[in-house]
């Protein structure tokens, strides 16, 4: 019994130390030892950021959840390719962004398929993967995001929701710095047109 209790205490201590461990330690354990528990802790820490990003750019909670799961599974399978240059969060966001782009391509394929089926069978309109109504009850955000292009949306969300610097956005999206800056400017302009944000402050 004592041995069992000691094992339980040791396991609790290990879990507690894992919860307090810095990201670098967890990443090292996950990369070198393929430690699932360490990776689980990383998932717990970053799921909010990844899901938050994807739900805003995809505009659909269910799709964002699927893409987030795929993001973390892909991260697990690609762990050996993580070189430790830049932060883990940036690496993860890059995978999330790529998952989003893939879903867009797949969405376009699905839409084309839906259109051809519609022509053939004259059926009712199939819902598109990304064209569904955004989640209700989250202020003006979905309405604002809906007026942006996918690329602009990604850049704006990374900048204002995730707090990424321009350099980090370049790393995540692979876009040139000039394009990132112009997307942000255009996003600001659109927000001015659509919502007159900041107008009240001028008075």
């Amino acid at each position: 019994m004592d041995v069992q209790r000691e094992r339980l205490v040791a396991s609790d201590r290990k879990e507690a130390s894992r919860n307090d461990a810095p990201d670098d330690t967890l990443v090292a354990d996950a990369v070198v030892y393929r430690d699932q528990a360490a990776f689980g802790e990383l998932v717990r820490r970053y799921q909010g950021r990844v899901r938050g990003y994807l739900v805003k750019v995809a505009g659909n909670a269910a799709l964002a959840d699927d893409l987030s799961q795929e993001t973390f599974i892909r991260a697990w399978t690609k762990l050996s390719s993580y070189r430790g240059t830049g932060n883990f969060s940036g690496w993860l966001m890059k995978i999330a962004h790529n998952q989003f782009l893939q879903s867009l391509r797949k969405g376009a394929r699905d839409r084309r398929l839906a259109e051809s089926l519609e022509q053939e069978a004259d059926t009712t309109e199939l819902p598109s993967v990304l064209g569904g109504a955004p989640d209700a009850g989250v202020s003006d955000l979905p309405r604002f995001l809906a007026v942006l292009s996918e690329e602009e949306r990604s850049v704006i969300v990374l900048s204002y929701a995730c707090g990424c610097s321009h350099a980090e956005i370049v790393e995540v999206t692979g876009l040139p710095l000039g394009t990132v800056k112009s997307h942000i400017q255009r996003g600001r302009a659109r927000v001015r047109e659509q919502f007159a944000i900041g107008e009240g402050d001028h008075e």
């Binding site: 998932v43 799921q47 899901r51 805003k56 799961q69 202020s139 969300v157 929701a161 900041g198």
Partner: peptide, 25 residues
């Protein structure tokens, strides 16, 4: 001011809670 307004717009939507997501992954 626009930056601040945009940040406030996004801050109004909190990050999703875990709700078993980590376990599913």
């Amino acid at each position: 001011r626009e930056d601040q307004a945009l940040r406030a717009l996004f801050a109004a939507v909190p990050e999703p809670a875990d709700s078993g997501f980590t376990d599913r992954v």
